[in-house]
Structures are given as C-alpha cells and as structure tokens.
Write a protein that binds this DNA or RNA. Structure first.
Ligand code: SF4
Ligand code: SF4
Lengths: 137, 137
DNA sequence: GTTAAACAGGACTATTTTAACCCTATTATC
DNA sequence: GATAATAGGGTTAAAATAGTCCTGTTTAAC
C-alpha cells in the first residue's frame, strides 16, 4: 500500500537529470535512458506526461529532445506526481462515488480527504531546487 | 498512485465499529459485515490481521467474535495500516534493494525515505479516539 | 459427547492496475 | 528525400489486489 509507481520515479529522476544539465540544454530520451539506466520506451511516456504538464518542454525533429519547462524552484514533487499519475485519489470514492459500495454509510471520508490533502502538502513542499540541494549536501 | 487498499478501509471501519460498541462487547464478523455492508470472508481476513497485531482480540467458539484489544486512544491509523498492509514501503527498494534496477546510482532514496517517514507520522497522529471525535463533531 | 456457531488460516481464482512493448504518425535537420 | 527525434494509440505481460473456497479448531449449548 502507498507505494509510488515506477513511472513517477522515472519522471522524478528525469527531471533532476534535466535540471543538472541546465535550463536550455536539450537532452534526448535515449541519452537519459542510457544514463539513468531504464527503458527508453517507458521513459518516453513519462516525458510526454511531463511535457503536457509544462514541466518539460520538447523540441521535435532530428536535433530534438527535452529540456525543463520551468525553473527548478517552480517545480514541486507534487507537480511531477500529478503530471504522471493524474489527480491523487487516496480513496476509491474520490475517482467516482460508485466505486465504493458503502459510500452512503461511510463516516470517515472526511478524514481520508484531509489526509490526502496533507500528503499533497508534503509533496508540494519539496521543489526540485530544494531536492537537488538536499542530495548534494 | 498512493491509494489505500480496500482491506485497509475495511479494517478501519471495523475498528471504529467495534469502538462504538464499547471495549468489552464481542461482535461477530457476520454482524459487522452485515452492518457495514461488505464481504464476510474478506473482512474476516482483515480481522485476523488486526488480531495478530493486538488491535483486536478474539473469542473463539459459539458465542465468539471480536472486540477491541486496546483502548481507542492507544490505536492509531498507522497501527491499523501496518497490521493490515505490513511495514510501509513507499519505494520498491525498501522491500529489497534488488527490486530496483538503478539502486546503486539512485540519488533520491534519502528523500523518499524521509517522505515515507513523514507520511507515517501523519497516520500515527490520528488515534481512533480522535477520529471518532472528528466524525461526531 | 454431539452439534453448531464462530474464529483461524491455507490455497486458489478473478479482477484490476501497472509496466512494458510495438507500431505508425509527425516534425525538423541535414 | 533520408534520418533522428518526439507524439501517441493500442496491445500484451506481469504484478498486486480483491475475493472465494475449503478444512480445521475452539467452545457454548443442548
Ligand atoms: S470507505 Fe469511505 S472513504 Fe473509503 S472509498 Fe468508500 S466512501 Fe470513500
Ligand atoms: S529509484 Fe531510488 S528510491 Fe526509487 S526504488 Fe530505486 S533506489 Fe529506491
């Protein structure tokens, strides 16, 4: 329970990788996959999600690739999580009420929702900038 | 990502149900399943986990059933999560290092581990006692 | 002491989610 | 026009979760 997906971790690694390369530098998926040690195809999907969210920017064509779409202190871990996994739903009923058979009689939905919010606050508290500092120091 | 399991929610509901019945009262799985509206067989597994963790106590035989094993302010949401899902592992490498192909080159393991710890602190901050008050108030 | 109602738990199956792969555009450089 | 890259749909494979079944053990009641 409560384990992050591999895709999210791929995405986070990719973003920190791009960050160390500087804001302007264009990097291909192939380079990142080789350097970080994971599947090119799968990372590619993660990058597409990050791009749609504006976290990464892409350049198409032969000399194309990805770069960061924002400065490192404008990207939080929560942003990456949402870009890749979509809106967070700690409980099934968050997706759609009828996903839970006891929705109408459930009394701790309120608590679960505040819990989810607190977790989001935790994720939003770390920017890529601060994460890189933490890793270095 | 980061969704709690149904079994955990079943367990949490069961514990709050037992709590409202008072510490001494013995309740059968059948009664709880009927009352809360979920599968007897599946709830039974959750109760067995809760019992092993000391959160619930059981009485075997004809007039048997379950009751709380501790007072409501000695049980936290984290306790229930651990009883049912086992030790939390936000990242794959927490289970076993070789579950992650990039373990040796990963730089944000430290961050992920502190994140996990903070989530545990959140869960441990709510006792069943305080949860019930929150629901009532 | 036999019966019946309950917990205990192993083993299996089904469902859902996640991960991975494949294949075809499209874009832009050379 | 060839090539190297992103964009993305669709399919398959693997893993985790949910749910079921079946057998045993305990104990109150008769
Ligand atoms: S049990 Fe309550 S909180 Fe959980 S999914 Fe159902 S309605 Fe939502
Ligand atoms: S990427 Fe890092 S934190 Fe995540 S599982 Fe691998 S070693 Fe652990």
């Amino acid at each position: 329970m409560l384990q992050v997906s591999r895709k999210f971790e791929y995405g986070l690694h990719a973003v920190t990788y791009l960050a160390t390369k500087g804001l302007g530098r264009v990097v291909t998926v192939k380079e990142m996959a080789d350097e970080l040690g994971f599947s090119q195809e799968f990372l590619s999907k993660a990058m597409q999600s990050l791009k749609r969210a504006g976290i990464a920017a892409s350049v198409q064509g032969v000399k194309g690739g990805y770069m960061l779409g924002k400065s490192t202190d404008a990207i939080t871990v929560a942003d990456i999580a949402i870009a890749i996994e979509g809106e967070p739903h700690l409980v099934r009923c968050g997706v759609k009420a009828d996903r839970c058979e006891i929705f109408s009689s459930c009394h701790h939905r309120g608590y679960m929702n505040t819990l989810q919010h607190k977790i989001q606050v935790l994720l939003a508290a770390t920017t890529i900038h601060s994460l890189l500092k933490e890793v270095a120091g």
